[in-house]
Design a protein around this nucleic acid. Sequence first.
DNA 1: AAGTGGTCTAGACCACATA
DNA 2: ATGTGGTCTAGACCACTTC
Lengths: 234, 234
Amino acid sequence: MTLEKRIRGDIEARIRSGELKPGDRIPFEHELTVTYACARATVSKALTGLARAGLIERRRKAGSFVAHRHVQTAVLEVPDLEKLITARGETYRWQRTHRSLAAEPDMGGPILRIEGVHYCGDDPFCLETRLISLSSVPAAAHETFATQAPGGWLLTHVPWTRARHAISARAATHPQARALGVTPGTACLAIERRTWRVMGRIDVPVTRVCQLFPGDRYDLVAEFNPGMQVDLGG
Amino acid sequence: MTLEKRIRGDIEARIRSGELKPGDRIPFEHELTVTYACARATVSKALTGLARAGLIERRRKAGSFVAHRHVQTAVLEVPDLEKLITARGETYRWQRTHRSLAAEPDMGGPILRIEGVHYCGDDPFCLETRLISLSSVPAAAHETFATQAPGGWLLTHVPWTRARHAISARAATHPQARALGVTPGTACLAIERRTWRVMGRIDVPVTRVCQLFPGDRYDLVAEFNPGMQVDLGG
DNA sequence: AAGTGGTCTAGACCACATA
DNA sequence: ATGTGGTCTAGACCACTTC
């Protein structure tokens, strides 16, 4: 237990217990250096951490204050589906159902379109439709993605990216329902993720994927603690 | 632009551009102090920030390395629905439909149960079922929640908490569909959030809410940059 | 054994918001 | 005008890991 964490923990406990309420002022840095008999840099690091976690707000000349609104935030970690399923002790399988080349103006040029199903054991688990920009990832043109899902391959072949996620609920269409082995109209969780590669100041589309999960087979579960610690469920 | 941010930005750019690939070693701290002609603490702060953002991994004696797997993470910020709607220029309204006292073993004692509908303009937008632990929040017993939604009230009356979110897709039941003005079976996005108050080492349940959004009226959109910067859409 | 990152110190100067 | 937080310096010791 470092001194920084001790200071941070003490203040966090006083906030959580209600002893310090939103709007209350936290002791000045120089006061805390006396309390803990340490250097100001150590106190500052502890308070910086608290501010980063959203527990306090810091204002020059005025001091540091307990933050007012607790912005409810969930951190969702969406790893490889394969890892998710194998972590549960189930067998994972990817079955490609479609592969074609096409043009997609939204993706800035020629694309590779892949469709397939992720299986959990013998049950369809997720229907995936993926577009890969060939101008951004030329190597993808040589891949069949017949046995390997595009997601894992892309993780190892594309450098850092920016992403945008949209999560919504949709009713399964007839072809979707057939692929997933459910009745048409079943409520499904749809996760759409677009990914860009940051090239200097312009962002180049890399891939766009829509994953459709039958509602009764998938929950996104995220545990959130204000201190930025994250747990993942599924 | 501080020196710390400049160092951090430089390294981040080299990673994003692909010049530094996963597994590559980043210059040692003492090397960076020479490069930037600064103190080691400044370099350390920059690298600590990169490690916190998940871009690099640091190992004693070995050095700092570009992180291997890019864990795809979405940060979803779920603020007050009222703010979400008013931010769009629509009028917000909360209509309570039910209020009762009951016992819920899962919540550790007596609870207040509130049900109601959030409106966006004249259209039902979200059906909310909320349980509030009265042993944790005794003051809630005196509130009617007839005109104010419980969410906003709780934000100002309950100290810091731990939360767990589950997001799934469900078909609207008949009563749910009636309340939301949709046809039964409509695919809906269900967000369930349980909140605990951390009391020392035990967590006391505070509230549990299930919000049901018609799938065609709501998307959760989260923009994610590896550097922890978050944008919110809706 | 050697060298790294982790942490801390005791100063310092600055910009800036507040009183 | 004053005092705060923001940032930085030039050291230091330690724990740990890898060599």
